[in-house]
C-alpha cells in the first residue's frame, strides 16, 4: 500500500509539473487528467472511495471535457513562456511550499491506521448537518448554469452572425 501511495503521489506531482510546463494546451490538459486520476487513487487509498469516484467522474470527466470543448472551439493555443518568467513564481512557490511543509511538519504525526468512510456516512452528513451547504451549492450551480447560459446566448448570437 505504501508503494501504491507513493507511486500515485509521484505520478500526480510529475503530471502537474508537466501541466504547467507544456506549451500545447491539449497536452497540458491530458496531463492534468492524469494528475487527477492519480489524486483519485490517493483518495481511494485514504478510504474515500466515493469522492474518488466523484473526482474521476466530475473533475476528470466533466470539467476537463469542458476544457477540451473550449479548446476545440477556439482552436489549438500555444502559450509561449520564457525561462525568465519562471524565476519569480518559482521562488515565491518555493517559499510558500517551505512554509506549508514547515507547518505540516510542526504538528504531531497522526496514527497510521486509516478508517474507510463510506458513502452512507457522507450522505447522512450532507443531508444532516450540512444541509444548508447543499442548498447553497444548489444556488451556486443554478447561478453557474444561468450565467453560462446567458453568456453562451450572447456568444451564439455573436458567432451566429458570421456563421450560417
Amino acid at each position: 500500500m505504501n508503494l501504491v501511495y507513493a507511486a500515485s503521489a509521484c505520478v500526480a506531482i510529475a503530471a502537474t509539473i508537466m501541466v504547467i510546463t507544456r506549451r500545447n494546451a491539449v497536452h497540458a490538459l491530458l496531463y492534468l487528467v492524469v494528475s487527477l486520476l492519480a489524486v483519485a487513487v490517493i483518495m481511494l487509498l485514504l478510504g474515500a472511495a466515493f469522492v474518488a469516484a466523484l473526482e474521476v467522474i466530475i473533475y476528470a470527466g466533466a470539467i476537463m471535457v469542458l476544457f477540451v470543448f473550449v479548446i476545440m472551439l477556439i482552436g489549438p493555443r500555444n502559450d509561449t513562456v520564457s525561462a525568465r518568467d519562471w524565476i519569480g513564481p518559482v521562488i515565491l512557490g518555493l517559499i510558500l511550499l517551505a512554509e506549508l511543509l514547515y507547518i505540516i511538519a510542526a504538528g504531531p504525526f497522526a496514527p497510521l491506521a486509516v478508517k474507510e468512510v463510506d458513502p452512507r456516512q457522507v450522505g447522512i452528513a450532507l443531508l444532516g448537518p450540512y444541509l444548508i451547504g447543499v442548498e447553497v451549492t444548489a444556488f451556486l450551480l443554478l447561478a453557474g448554469l444561468v450565467g453560462a447560459f446567458h453568456l453562451g446566448r450572447r456568444l451564439a448570437v455573436t458567432l451566429g452572425r458570421k456563421g450560417d
Binding site: 519569480g88 513564481p89 515565491l92 512557490g93 517559499i95 510558500l96 512554509e99 506549508l100 514547515y102 507547518i103 510542526a106
Partner: peptide, 16 residues
C-alpha cells in the same frame, strides 16, 4: 495573483 500569493506567504510566515 502574485501579489496575493506573496501576501499569503507573508501572512503564513508571520503566523508561523
Amino acid at each position: 495573483a502574485a501579489g496575493v500569493a506573496a501576501g499569503a506567504a507573508l501572512v503564513i510566515a508571520a503566523a508561523v
